[in-house]
Amino acid sequence: MEAIGTVLLAMLAGSLRVSTPFLFVSLGECLTEKSGRINLGNEGVLVLGAMVAYATSYETGSPWAGVAAAAVSGLLLGGIHGAICSLARVNDVAMGIAIMLAGTGIAFFFGKPYVQPSATLLSGIPFGFWSDNAQVRNALSVCPLFLLGIAAAVALHWCFNATRVGLRVRIVGDSQDAALALGLPIDRTRFLATACGSALAGIGGAFLSLYYPGSWNEGLSSGQGLMAVALVVFSRWNPINCIYASLLFGAAGALGPSLQTVGITWGYYLFYAAPYIFTLVVLIITARGGKSLRGMPGQLSIGR
């Protein structure tokens, strides 16, 4: 019983910790997909953002400058993706894979000198101050970026439903014909949505290097940027659902390490694969039938 409690607590803690990059990348992906494009390059943006944030924090001593720099790097890389995909006949799925390769390449290239030194990290907000159980305190020490992510999700949701900009993005993503009839700038909207989405993904990368795991190395990201695509499908292109989905994915990711805390080391690698298996199950459940999904933007290439 004690052990189960420990595991659950560790999973809660892990979920709060691991979910933040999922949250940012999925929000960014959600924004991009709402405009009718898919960006698999967010994996590259995540790695680049992590490197840029770590390097900036090391050079300036300010982790928040690192977060800002990560967002800018994401904006640039996403902008490249968005601009090239605006050209006729360019496949956005394949281009995303290319951007992923280029982004990780650039990050590894410039990140080489920053593998060793330790940068100033972000510090958590101690929501667990009321408890004298060290584990509970540890679990409830929440990164400010997580709160920022929730705020961003709420803001994005409001934006999509209540503002002119959000509605325009949705029109462009849902029906190219309607957007043309209304005279909306389709390519520019998608370009901006991709760039801004990648900026969010870049912040997710900053979390990886500046909070948890809290260091920069070449194995930092384990496909969160790509799993975000599945996560967005799971949340039905709704930013608020992205929060729940990220927490759920985070909990799945924390399963292996949590079991280790109570001494279960068998099948470490299998439990490590839990979020991927979970992703696959989610894909199967949500994609059944061959009809387009509820809430799915009409112009999305994976739906056609």
Binding site: G223, V233, L283
Partner: peptide, 12 residues
């Protein structure tokens, strides 16, 4: 099942 093959193959 009409699961997108890009994500499925990567996750697999």
């Amino acid at each position: 099942l009409n699961v997108n093959e890009v994500i499925a193959s990567l996750v697999l």
